[in-house]
Design a protein around this nucleic acid. Structure first.
Length: 354
DNA sequence: TAGTATT
């Protein structure tokens, strides 16, 4: 029997009230991840994100050994998480540093080392209801932590009665928590709580879904449509998270990039893209986010003022493949980021015309 | 009484 009450990586999750960014210690420093140094699990992915987009985003960090978006076996719908296995452990660490907490659409993605796959860690998620409305996430964890290591916790907001989730590291820990806490009154509570296993969405293959599938069998987009769909998804991705809105194509003047001027931007290591009109508080993550979905991004840089450390209004992105860089430019030039309209072009060597 | 973490 395994010891469950080790004081190991204690999960002191701070309740941000945000979308369940649950920093159980630092994923970088957890120290007990000897078989997880390259394999990452990515949680809270937007529903619309495809495996290709996942691969593009994480492939911009470094070479990927494998990448898998987990989908419902029946419907094919994304289950909102996936795995990215890097060749180099350093890239895995860099991905955590760079992409954990990134906002995509309505989600804030979580990037952390994957635990070794095992049946013992499956179905360890609990649904808790009847909680005091005043209970915080931290208090919820304190209540449950006596039964094992908590992987994630959440209290739903806007609930009449307190509803929350607790995911344990091991299913057996969840079972013990049900035995110990279901029907019990937490300290200072007036009503008992209900603790049960959370519904497993992958088992929710009801007749309606099957019926839908039956009436639209294996619909596939032809290739050009697939590209349009990709673009549409990107629009959506960029839209809600950062208030990025697409402008009509002709609103950008000074757009000397796509008219077939010089073949600029080629810099040996890839295609260098100039991004102009960034906000003073812009950082690298927004560049990764905007360009990553288009393909291999090898580097991003925000140019900052030496003294204030504020962005000077522009930055650079290096992409490996010309086609992907051109698509990124075509799509992102003219985007409104906050209250600014971006100008995106291949980098030129001249700052003024001769 | 409901979000979605083990390929």
């Amino acid at each position: 029997m395994e010891t469950q009450l080790s004081n190991g990586p204690t999960c002191n999750n701070t309740a941000h009230g945000s979308n369940a960014i649950n920093n159980c210690s630092s994923p970088i420093d957890s120290g007990n991840t000897e078989d997880s140094k390259t394999n990452l699990i990515v949680n809270y992915l937007p529903q619309s994100m495809t495996q290709e987009e996942l691969k593009s985003l994480f492939g911009s960090i470094g070479e990927i050994e494998s990448c898998k978006l987990v989908r419902d076996k029946i419907t094919g719908q994304s289950l909102g998480y996936g795995f990215v296995n890097y060749v180099d452990p350093k890239d895995a660490e860099k991905a955590i540093n760079t992409l954990n907490g990134l906002r995509l659409q309505t989600k804030t993605i979580k990037v952390s080392y994957a635990r070794p796959s095992s049946a013992s860690i499956r179905d360890a998620n609990l649904y808790v209801s009847g909680l005091p409305k005043t209970m915080t996430q931290k208090e919820l964890e304190q209540l449950f932590s006596q039964y094992g290591r908590i992987i994630t916790s959440r209290i739903l907001v806007d609930q009449v009665t307190g509803v929350g989730f607790i995911r344990f590291d091991k299913r057996i820990e969840a079972e013990e928590a049900i035995k110990g806490l279901n029907g019990q009154k937490p300290p200072a509570a007036t009503e008992p709580i209900t603790v049960k296993f959370a519904n497993n969405p992958s088992q929710k293959t009801n007749q309606a879904i099957l019926s839908q599938l039956y009436h639209s069998p294996n619909r596939r987009y032809p290739a050009p449509l697939a590209q349009q769909a990709q673009r549409f998804r990107l629009d959506n991705l960029l839209n809600m998270a950062y208030g990025v809105k697409r402008f009509p194509p002709m609103t950008i003047d000074g757009m000397t990039s796509l008219a077939g001027i010089n073949i600029p931007g080629h810099a040996g290591t890839g295609w260098c893209i100039f991004v102009y009109n960034l906000a003073p508080d812009a950082d690298e993550s927004i560049l990764w986010q905007m360009f990553g979905p288009f393909g291999a991004v090898t580097n991003v840089k925000v140019i900052r003022d030496f003294n204030t450390n504020k962005c000077k209004g522009f930055g650079f992105v290096t992409m490996t493949n010309y086609d992907e860089a051109a698509m990124a430019i075509a799509s992102l030039n003219g985007y409104r980021l906050g209250d600014r309209v971006l100008q995106v072009s291949f980098k030129t060597n001249k700052t003024h015309k001769a």
